[in-house]
Design a protein around this nucleic acid. Structure first.
Lengths: 338, 338
DNA sequence: TTGTAAGCGTTATCAA
DNA sequence: TTGATAACGCTTACAA
């Protein structure tokens, strides 16, 4: 069929001398009452015409696209990428297609993408919320579109959410430092926003854990600045006499900036400064010294998010819940005894 | 409209007391002959009903989805990710949607994804070819589906292809080493396959460049192994007396393994071994020592690939060509004078 | 066991 | 300036 037009189900039906509906049955593997001869004729016609079905038409008719949308706030985080890869794997196994959109933490972009995917009639959404976009999310809920959140909790809304146990992650870091004799422990993070669950929870986990170890939190050792200014910010903050002996970095992107700072200032890790990173990175284990890190359970999170969404889509009703999973501590070389 | 069913164009038409076709005109901004009053009524009905168009139906009718598919062989390469991000940006500006699929270098997966995206009626493909899948590509060409290749050349096919000037990349590395007095220069790469344009071209560029500098290539200094075995492989190969003083790594993933090897063997960079990496990485500039690297022009490549494809889709005919772009040399700290 | 016919939500042609 | 009507390619009652 090197004809211009792609063949349709009608072409196959005509070619096989059989009706459209029977061909449709065949394509959907409803073979119950189908004669062998019929099947064979259809099979041959399909091959001969090089027919392949038009998914759009099917979706339009069935009001179901077997496609889900993933809206991710920041694809630059290795964590997001890994969660998404897992979701894709789970979905592919069930022949569900996945469309990924990256919002760069921009609520307008987020809105635009949600609308676009709705126009495309996706069957459901997995969203890493960009921030304060509750109107949009509520709208989705009103329309009863299946929805799962990842990484960030929107307390105002009843939506299943799956994320790392962030307080536990901070606790792991602090405990490790304490075990190695550190008391002056600092915490580095991008600017706090209440909507950013991971960093707020990690910071609160940090405070709680310090407390639990009977250490006081020195507010001068909490470092928060935009990543683009982080190095300069740390330089000026580290001018003072009293400095922390140990630092928790709040995520992979923050870690990179802290390492850049240490490199520029020739601060020797861990001799002068111990570090634990929340988030592992590809080069972390190979860095000099290898970065002690806390790895988020991206795989578990992705798999859970996917199965929650697919359950919702298939109307296996569940009441929305919040699912937290434990991170893993990776002992390496950036923490010194003090 | 908290009704179950989502409103359609007919609902809007009824609500506004106007025909479907006029509403359709309105939606497509064909306002030439439209009365102000009509426009207003439509606008209000749309708002009131919270109508949003069904893209599927439109695509079915127009035989055009305003969607392209990207098939990428290995999303783990930072290069691929950056190219894709650029393509997405270009397309978003023109309201073209993008669906990305990762094949893990698996030709069967590639075939499956191409078929899926065809079923979804995408308007064109940008493919980072997984390997020897020429039948599939030829089929696409036969069906006159717009197609652009990135990163790998399929010499048997007449398809526009855009990629890094890989020979130049190798040349940059060798020249830099020579300038610093190195003669015993090695090259590390994953297993050679003729379909993998980057590594074959980088290696041939390496050989040519050595020759141009009147240096002989020591075949014992060409290291090729699967990434998973690379560290062990290098360990055994480095048992011998004569070793290179400098190493070119063929891409980012290879660099990581070489660094791992050096770390495990306590080989001091650059004192004992100089390194230039083809491909920059997020942590490269922060590594100790900072990795001298050659950065691929991912942005230029992505933009060119997107515009070539969009031109093809819009039937601005062009004869297929091969477009190579120059990489950038980033002088850092992993090359020593010898 | 297979066929007929209506309909999914749009757009496009032509007529009014 | 707007409206009727037929398509787009498929599924699905229901009929035969």
């Amino acid at each position: 069929m090197k004809n211009g037009r792609r063949p349709t189900i009608s072409d196959v039906a005509n070619h096989a001398g059989i009706s459209k509906s029977t061909v449709s049955q065949y394509l959907n593997e409803r073979f119950e009452y189908m004669g062998e001869e019929t099947k064979k004729r259809i099979r041959e016609s399909i091959k001969e015409l090089e027919y392949s079905p038009n998914f759009l038409a099917k979706s339009l008719k069935q009001k179901k696209t077997y496609t889900i949308g993933i809206i991710v706030a920041n694809i630059l985080h290795g964590f997001s990428t890994r969660v998404i890869r897992t979701i894709e794997d789970v979905c592919n196994e069930q022949n569900i297609h996945v469309i990924v959109c990256n919002t760069d933490e921009d609520v307008n972009k987020e809105q635009k993408y949600v609308e676009m995917l709705q126009a495309k009639q996706v069957d459901g959404f997995i969203i890493f919320p960009a921030g304060d976009n509750n109107e949009l999310y509520r709208e989705l809920l009103n329309q009863e579109i299946p929805l799962v959140f990842v990484d960030r909790i929107i307390p105002e809304l009843q939506v299943s959410t799956v994320l790392t146990d962030n307080e536990q992650a901070a606790e792991m870091a602090v405990s490790h430092f304490v075990e190695y004799g550190h008391k002056d422990i600092g915490f580095v993070l991008p600017p706090m926003k209440s909507t950013m669950t991971p960093r707020t929870e990690r910071l609160s986990g940090f405070r709680k854990s310090m407390h639990r170890h009977s250490l006081s939190v020195n507010e001068d050792f909490i470092y928060s600045a935009p990543l683009t200014d982080m190095v300069g910010y740390l330089k000026s903050r580290f001018q003072t006499a009293r400095k922390p002996t140990a630092l928790v970095t709040s995520n992979d992107l923050t870690l990179v900036e802290v390492l850049r700072f240490c490199k520029e200032q020739a601060i020797v890790i861990p001799d002068e400064l111990s570090i634990v990173s929340i988030d592992d990175m590809p080069l972390a284990s190979v860095y000099n010294p290898a970065i002690t890190a806390i790895d988020q359970p991206a795989f578990t999170i992705g798999a859970k998010a996917a199965s929650l969404l697919l359950d919702e889509i298939n109307e296996r009703e569940k009441t929305p819940g919040i699912y937290r999973f434990s991170p893993t501590f990776l002992k390496r070389e950036t923490v010194n005894r003090t």
